[in-house]
Design a protein around this nucleic acid. Structure first.
Length: 914
RNA sequence: GGGCUCAUAGCUCAGUUGGUUAGAGCGUUGCGUUGACAUCGCAAAGGUCUGAGGUUCAAGUCCUCAUGGGCCCACCA
């Protein structure tokens, strides 16, 4: 007999075992040619990250996969790390120094970066600690950070290689500019959101005849200060004769031409569009095509600049108001209409993006996309669920060049150096603009530009040592996209890893684990990360980075809103862990997350997991209290072969292996919720509710001992990936001094033990038990009163099936005397139920106080009768029908129908007493 | 404008290639507590699977259309 404490205390157990696993290095994986590799690279959380439910879901799934494959005997590596998250982290540190009244400019670049590193040292491991609380079995000795020295080396290497290949170029284009973060953003970082805005109709006077106007419609009137043309469709008869004429731009009095361009939609607005080449991507294209002037009217913070004349220094939205007022005064505002428009928003601070002309670095993506498209089309990389394949391909096939330079300080500084002397002889910015553009080969600014991993001593062209580095840093994703191989130390030039003491990179590891196996991530990040990793994988490793991509849903609150701090609807995983335990958190969130669907959470939903943990604990406790430890050594398959097992034990064994078989299928098919539900249902309702209840009366018998132990032991192993802590704790109580359960092999499906026929027979037996219980409840037989029962079996086969189970029927139904007969004979004062051709009969005489029961029934029948009559009367009343609200009438009708049904049932029971 | 997704019990959702009587958790109702577990057990009530067509021996499941939510992408000023 083994004792287990009466209650399970997750907090103490979890911390103890996690520490033990870590100390014993059980999460470590190395290249081991004797084993099949299985590798997951973690989606690196931001260093600024605080664990939220999205992480909990994401990492639980990964841990389940890793532990499952590890137990299956594969060399399972879960590669951990964090992302420096350029803009996000910079914002956090800026906020923190703002409390001291400081801006980053006050500190200067170097001092500010020191502050960021300090911040990182202090808080950067928070998220890692929290991942450990989740039970994540990452190989922590390999933990990477995207700003590690070795990792940074990979980033520079990649930049240089792409530049030398002609895939990186610099140029001036309209990019997404966040005026708050004051940096360029990639298209993906500026998602469009709908806004309620206005369409302003502005009148631009003709130069020849100031009494005549061309009316243009715009949603951003402040940009009119930068207009350098008005465009119309060449086929638009309203304007045809005006093409080539000149207008005078109000407020600034600049003369601007009317040009013709087929891009203009005749049906939108007035059919005439103002052209602002420096503030709109379409206008930019037109500007180049028609050789227009580029007038930038804003500063980087989106306040107006000197080109804006009187509006200088106003914020863009303030300028909008004032300009509209001024135009109105001058009679140049025709009208304002409400208009729904969509505008880009900064994905970090949600400020409305300003399309802004500036000089940035870009990656030409089309050549990189090609093999990445093929790989998915050919099925070398599979998305789960498969529908994401379409989303991926659609994006990849329309891929745009990637703006990778950011005007912030925290990040990998662009490895580009300029020779001041050579540069001064290069083309000016405006010249360069006019020579570039979509559809043409982008200019590679080669003159005075040196791209190199290390700072050159002197200019290779003119020998000058007046050399300075580009001020910008790279997009965070320009480092993240290398994650599946840069984390292994690629490109192995320097050979050492200065950032993680004691850890040495090995190219062998990369060769062994790459391509990795499965990537587990959320839908929001497919373009940012997944697609780009696939491209980088091909470009730098010549192969796919992973085979399967599992996309899980987004965690939302119970109303379907995204969880966010600002909405205050966050459920903190750590709070759930404190209250219910990590295992409860993990299994709950897995059970309610169906493949790829968003997850709607409320705190109560974690009770299910907590209750399950409690159930497991108590069942294990029960088994152990009654267990003879001698049976532990029994080999189940041998035992099964030799012993003449009874149907109950055959059934539970069969059910276990059926469940296991389906479990394997679900895990291999990324159906984690179904997998967890299988285990839950098997354990609670089959093992506990039926099996343990049945064997209780003969628990000491060898066959019950062996089977209950074996089922528990194998179940614990199968459950371990989902609930690692409680399974370990019970495992260790069962096998004191044993190695961790996580090192034990995954149970093997024993096909010969699965007996469908046995399962069916038991199903029938359950229905018999339920049938008798129902009858007892029906006539209110006191729970503890033992009764007589007769089962008319109708066939000998049925009788033979039921006979060995009669003891169970007696026990489970409180039957003292069970009579099995073949032919059915009607008996007086009995209650009968038909189940699969079996007549279940319980005599009522002597069991129920028949007189009393009949009286009660008659009373109920009488009451129901009266109620029905009353309702019928109400419903026959034409005044009621005419005056009562329809819903009330409907309610009354429903009530009547219910009453009639009740009456029928009562009469049937009453009939049994005749 | 293009695409995806959802609609099943009071609530939140499962339901893998079509196949007997559509499931779970929570909630509701009744009964039950002298040792595994009240974080429990036994039982009950509750569904014309959003609507309309179609394919089929057979449709919650496949097809078409409609209605109503959610999401993504796209340069409509």
């Amino acid at each position: 007999m083994i004792e287990l404490p009466k209650t399970y205390s997750p907090a103490e157990v979890e911390d103890r075992w996690y520490k033990d696993w870590e100390e014993k290095k059980l999460f470590a994986a190395r290249n081991n040619p004797a084993k099949k590799p299985f590798c997951i690279v973690i989606p690196p959380p931001n260093v600024t990250g605080i664990l939220h439910m999205g992480h909990a879901l994401n990492n639980t799934i990964q841990d389940i996969l890793i532990r499952y494959h590890r137990m299956k005997g594969e060399e399972a590596l879960w590669m951990p790390g964090t992302d420096h998250a350029g803009i996000a982290t910079q914002n956090v540190v800026e906020k923190s120094i703002a409390k001291q009244g400081l801006k980053r400019q006050d500190l200067g670049r170097e001092k500010f970066l020191e502050r960021v590193w300090e911040w990182k040292e202090q808080y950067g491991s928070t998220i890692i600690r929290q991942l450990k609380k989740l039970g994540s079995s990452c190989d922590w000795d390999r933990t990477r950070f995207t700003m590690d020295e070795a990792y940074s080396d990979a980033v520079k290497e990649v930049f240089v290689r792409l530049y030398e290949k002609g895939l990186i170029y610099q140029g001036s284009y309209i990019i997404n500019w966040c005026p708050r973060c004051q940096t360029a953003l990639a298209d993906e970082e500026a998602p469009h959101r709908e806004l309620d805005g206005h369409l302003y109709y502005l009148k631009y006077p003709c130069k020849d005849d100031p009494e005549k106007f061309v009316v243009v419609a715009t949603t951003r009137p402040e940009t009119m200060l930068g207009d350098t043309a008005v465009a119309v469709n060449p086929k638009d008869s309203r304007y045809r004769k005006l093409i080539g004429k000149t207008l005078v731009l109000p407020l600034v009095n600049r003369e601007i031409p009317i040009i013709a361009d087929a891009v203009v939609d005749k049906k939108f607005g007035t059919g005439a569009v103002k052209v602002t080449p420096a503030h709109d991507p379409n206008d930019y294209a037109m500007g180049k095509k028609h050789g227009l002037e580029f007038v930038n009217v804003m500063r980087p913070d989106a306040s107006m600049n000197e080109n804006a004349g009187d509006y200088k220094e106003m914020d863009r939205f303030e300028a909008r108001e004032v300009i509209i007022e001024d135009l109105k005064e001058q009679g140049l505002l025709e009208k304002i209409e409400p208009h729904r428009l969509s505008a880009g928003h900064c994905y970090r601070c949600h400020t409305i993006i300003e399309p802004y002309l500036s000089k940035q670095w870009f990656v030409n993506m089309k050549p990189l996309a090609k093999p990445a498209i093929r790989a998915v089309k050919d099925g070398h990389i599979k998305f789960h669920p498969a529908r994401w394949k379409k989303v991926y391909l659609n994006w990849m096939e329309n891929i745009q060049d990637w703006c990778i330079s950011r005007q912030i300080w925290w990040g990998h500084r662009i490895p580009v150096y300029y020779c001041r002397a050579c540069l001064s002889q290069g083309p000016s910015l405006s010249e360069s603009i006019n020579r570039q553009g979509k559809g043409t080969v982008p200019e590679r600014v080669a003159h005075g530009v040196i791209v190199s991993k290390v700072k050159p001593e002197k200019c290779p062209v003119c020998g000058s040592n007046d050399i300075y580095q580009d001020e910008d840093v790279l997009d965070t994703w320009f480092s993240s996209w290398l994650w599946p191989f840069a984390t292994f130390g690629w490109p192995f030039g320097s050979g050492t890893d200065a950032t993680t003491p004691g850890h040495k990179f090995s190219e062998k590891d990369l060769r062994y684990f790459y391509p990795t196996s499965t990537l587990v991530t959320a839908q929001e990040i497919i373009f940012f990360w997944v697609a780009r990793m696939i491209m980088a994988g091909f470009e730098f490793m010549g192969d796919i980075p992973f085979r399967d991509v599992y996309i899980h849903g987004t965690v939302r609150d119970i109303e379907g809103k995204k969880m966010s701090k600002s909405l205050g609807n966050v459920i903190d995983p750590l709070e759930i862990i404190n209250e219910y335990g990590t295992d409860a958190l993990r299994v709950s969130i897995i059970m309610i997350t169906s493949q790829g669907q968003d997850v709607f959470l409320s705190k109560e939903r974690f009770e299910q997991g907590r209750n399950f943990a409690n159930k497991i604990w108590n069942a294990a406790r029960f088994v152990m209290l009654n267990l003879d430890p001698g049976v532990i050594k029994t080999d189940l398959c041998e035992y099964f072969k030799k012993e003449d097992l009874d149907i109950t034990n055959r059934w539970i064994l069969s059910r276990f292996y059926s469940t296991l078989k389906n479990l394997n299928k679900d895990l291999d098919g990324f159906k984690f919720n179904e997998a967890a539900n299988l285990l839950y249902h098997f354990f609670w309702h089959e093992f506990c509710d039926w099996y343990l209840e049945m064997i209780k009366q003969d628990i000491a018998s060898p066959r019950n001992q062996v089977v209950m132990y074996k089922i528990l032991e194998k179940f614990l192993r199968a459950l371990h990936p989902f609930m690692p802590f409680i399974t370990e704790e019970i495992w260790q109580k069962l096998h004191p001094g044993s190695e961790s359960i996580m090192t034990k092999p995954w149970p093997h499906v024993q096909e010969q033990i699965i007996e469908k026929r046995t399962e069916q027979k038991m199903e029938m037996f359950f229905e018999v038990v339920t049938g008798i219980r129902n009858m007892r409840a029906e006539v209110e037989i006191p729970p503890h009163l033992e009764i007589r029962a007769i089962i008319f079996c109708s066939t000998r086969a049925n009788a033979d099936m039921i006979r060995p189970l009669s003891a169970h029927i007696k026990k489970l139904c409180k039957v003292s005397d069970l009579d099995l007969q073949l032919e059915y004979r009607h008996q007086k004062s009995t209650l009968t139920t038909l189940v699969h051709g079996l007549h279940l009969v319980i005599p009522l005489e002597g069991v129920v106080d028949i007189e009393n029961q009949v009286r009660k029934l008659d009373e109920k029948i009488k009451k129901a009768d009266q109620d029905i009559t009353a309702k019928e009367r109400t419903l026959a009343n034409s005044d009621f029908l005419a005056r009562a609200p329809a819903e009330i009438v409907e309610k009354e009708q429903t009530k009547l129908a219910d009453l009639r049904q009740l009456l029928t049932k009562l009469k049937a029971v009453r009939h049994a007493f005749d």
